[in-house]
Design a protein around this nucleic acid. Structure first.
Lengths: 127, 127
DNA sequence: GACTGATGTCATATTTTCTAACATTTGTTA
DNA sequence: TAACAAATGTTAGAAAATATGACATCAGTC
């Protein structure tokens, strides 16, 4: 599946194509980028280039918005997914080092200090 | 597999992307089109738009040329493939009518008259 | 009623692509 | 060898697509 993943993440589509495939306006697409929901690449001439994965994500965003989820909410969902995925990967590739543990605990403390509670998306793996 | 075919034939890529994916110049890509080796679509603004199938074909063309096959040869190959595919489809969808038989026989005669022999690609199905 | 989030619209600049013409290169043929 | 054709390069000028930034709108919230 490595090959397919690579293809799906190749930035090959200009914004005009993305508009048609997603039924979003250029304004919307750029706004979602400004809100950090997507990070399209740029070509040598500074034009945004999108991958099939970007298309999927934009369709998702569109659906979330239609459901009434606001952009902050969507962002939170993606951040949660990202941290979960990262945790999974770290877990698979190498067992946690002492440094990892220290860093994770520090992160948790900082988060609690700021928000008053742990968010559901943060993976609380048993150490 | 219908869905995948559709996706692969969607014209979504501008020529700049195609250049990168195929390592061909715009000049070459347009020339092959002029020689009728590919038929990209055009968007509303008259810009050429290519599908993944177009990419595959361009890579094939590149390989044929590298092997020493000239454009006329490549064209012959594709025409042969097209007629074979068409014959197959016609064969599946409806058995040959008398008219089909007459037309096919006439085609064969014409070809022999011009070339002196039947080309290997022409499907000689038993009637 | 003021504010904010999401989007529309417009102006201006830059990049990309188009067509058409002429140039170059290489292999073939009279 | 000169001439020719096939494939590609290069250039010019026009049109289309995209970028950014500003201001406008509109709906929902405090």
């Amino acid at each position: 599946m490595k090959e397919k993943e690579l293809r799906r993440s190749l930035a090959v589509l200009p914004i005009g194509t993305v508009m048609k495939l997603t039924d979003l306006t250029a304004r919307q697409i750029r706004y979602y980028e400004a809100q950090q929901l997507i990070q399209p690449e740029r070509n040598e001439g500074n034009r945004r280039m999108y991958s099939l994965n970007d298309i999927d994500r934009l369709l998702e965003i569109r659906d979330y918005l239609a459901e009434g989820v606001n952009i902050a909410g969507i962002k939170a969902i993606y951040e949660q997914q990202a941290s979960a995925a990262q945790a999974k990967q770290e877990n698979q590739e190498h067992p946690l080092t002492d440094d990892d543990v220290r860093r994770i605990m520090q992160d948790e403390f900082l988060r609690q200090g700021r928000l008053g509670q742990t968010r559901p998306g943060i993976q609380q793996r048993p150490l």
